[in-house]
Amino acid sequence: MQRYLLLLALFSFLLTSCEKETEDNTPPIIVFKLGDYTADGQYVPVGGKLSFGIAASEGGAPLTNFRVQRIADGKIITEVDKGMFVPSGGIEQTVNAVKSPALVEEWRFMVMNANRDSAVISRTINLGEGSAYGPIRHFESVTIGMQDNDVYPHFLDLNTGVAYSNETVTGNESAIDLLAFVYYTGGKWSPTLNCPGYGSISSYYPAVGQWETANTTLYDYNSVDNDLVDPLDFEAAANDSLLIYSFNPQTSNANCKYCYTGKIIPFRTEEGKYGLIRVLHADEVSSGYMELEIKIQE
């Protein structure tokens, strides 16, 4: 009798170890916000500013993806493709862009949650008359220190060209777009441009991990690796057209390696401003520095 009871106990353990979880399959919701944003069907001249306000809620599972696509001239360009994990409270985003020469652009905004349920909305923008390329700011020389440099400041505001040190950055964290470090990767030392919103930046700048606002700047690494921007074009740039069209969102990353002296790097800031950086000097040691020339949309 005892052996039967023992067997029964063992089998019961196996049988009861399975539990069925209840799931919430409510899909996410995405809507356009009201406000000073580009309207559906609006006519915007080439180079003109586009602005879209988005609000999304997660539905039955955390929000995990926000994607923005521009469909123009038969091509689909993914402007934003951001992974996230938002368990509650939803998200609000403002997407800034620049009107291309295409006659008609369809802008698609999608969110997905952890159940792989998604929601999509779209807006159509037409080409207006004339051109609206805008002015740019030009900072001829800005110097920042690498992670172990204690002479130069580390944290750069690309809008103003002002660099902040560990002490002066307090209270100005939300303005910081760029910082730099050196590390060994792919068999060589790499002077690297990065940003506060990058996942592992606190490995090099521990204090950044505590910032409330950590902006993400994206750099076009393909353009850097293949020297796609001509230095002469960079020097001649007087409005933002080169800055906009040099940047390919589909080959962009917040970590830009191998930014050696002479490289030209297209970028886009968190708020959607396009720009170009020319590296005037880059050390390949962590105690070194970088000297940058910057052109950015006003």
Binding site: T64, G83, M84, F85, G197, G199, N253, A254
Partner: peptide, 9 residues
Amino acid sequence: EWFKDDYTW
């Protein structure tokens, strides 16, 4: 999962 310029899972 990892977090670099954004989150991947």
